[in-house]
Design a binder for these strands. Structure first.
Lengths: 209, 209
DNA sequence: ATCTTATTGTGATTAGAGGCACATGCGTGC
DNA sequence: GCACGCATGTGCCTCTAATCACAATAAGAT
């Protein structure tokens, strides 16, 4: 396949594939067809084949895909073959929950720093043993601990300021849970986890059918 | 404008617009152009005008949109002019955090029931005063309290079972935080909040540039 | 009253993603 | 060793969504 720009949706689906493949491994399935995998992920079989085709040839014609191999390859494509160092900013209810959450721990995502503006919290430890630091130390600590991703769990009003600080500290990827749009310079990727938007979608659906 | 099927992406953006409009109201701005609003939301101005055009004419040519009016209209479109009754299932760290979170409380989303399978938790109260019930009472309680949306915060393995119970209890909209794909019958809308996928996106971005 | 300026609403255009369908090629059975 | 069946890889087509560009039109200035 020629060298093409890869759709963001493809990357998102690759992530879905890894989960389905992990499930298959648990069930001791060794080979899977695009048809079967498609059912598990709720997508079109051709879609799967095309997504994979962006990165090479992973299947065997007449057979399918070897589950373990494919999982390895897809993880490698996504960059999940290594550990990632994260910092959490805003250690309220949600922030604490995330630090301990399986979605992070399952793969190689590790929190190595925590920040909060609340003076009452500074110096305290999270359940993981992580010490909470004040935001003004973000620059030094993040560089020190080589933080690669920042997770923002502050109220919306502070999110942009925190994002700026993270960028300043050399962080190139931000996961934003605050319900607001964050501006970041080129070269910094922001992903929003916006459940208020999802809720509104549901409300609309229920309202109109 | 003719009667057309409305893209899901449009609804998602409408939700973004409401947030930007609320910010503008706080800043006492009374009129806004599609250009300005587009900047705030990070989208194309024509996109905004077209999104709105699906539902009618809301602007004044040569002037722009009256912020307060537009916010009212868009909220009405999304169904945010009324209260919505939710149930939370899975009251771990994340579940607890969500029940108290501003994203839900800000608009008219109200938790009226909570469920968890852990016998240690049943009968206890959340910070909001909500009593935790066992899953087998879901059917009766949800119908009793007229729950309209269900929020799933269980581990992935239980998510599908819980979804089935919610559907059985007459719930027509599900917000799923578990990292797994949920099957639901026609007429039931499922939205996934999947931060493990978002993380993987960031990992990919950092890996390949 | 008319002209100017600003901004909407929308038809036309472009871009892009998803799905179909078939040729390709691997493995198995005879 | 050959033929058959099956699932991949991929060119092509379709459909949808985003963007452009302009005509319509409202407010304010002259």
């Amino acid at each position: 396949m020629k060298f093409l720009k890869i759709p963001a949706a493809t990357i998102t689906r690759l992530s879905l594939y890894t989960r389905a493949l992990e499930t298959l491994i648990k069930e001791q399935v060794t080979v899977v067809s695009s048809k079967r995998l498609a059912e598990l992920c709720g997508v079109n079989p051709a879609q799967i084949r095309k997504d994979l085709a962006y990165f090479g040839q992973f299947g065997v014609r007449g057979v399918g895909y070897y589950v373990k191999e494919l999982l390895f390859d897809v993880k490698k494509i996504l960059g999940l073959h290594r550990e990632w160092k994260l910092a959490i900013v805003g250690v309220g209810n949600l922030g604490c929950a995330l630090v301990a959450h399986e979605n992070f721990t399952r793969q190689g995502y590790r929190f190595v720093a925590a920040f909060d503006a609340d003076p009452m919290k500074i110096g305290r430890k999270l359940v993981t043993g992580l010490v909470i630091n004040p935001p003004n130390e973000m620059h030094n600590i993040c560089r020190d601990k080589q933080v690669e991703m920042g997770v923002i769990c502050t109220p919306a009003d502070f999110a942009q300021d925190i994002a700026n600080r993270l960028v300043d500290a050399g962080v190139k990827a931000i996961l934003n849970f605050a319900p607001t749009q964050i501006q970041a310079p080129d070269g910094v990727k922001v992903e929003n986890v916006d459940f208020s938007v999802k809720l509104d979608n549901l409300a609309y659906y229920l309202t109109t059918g």
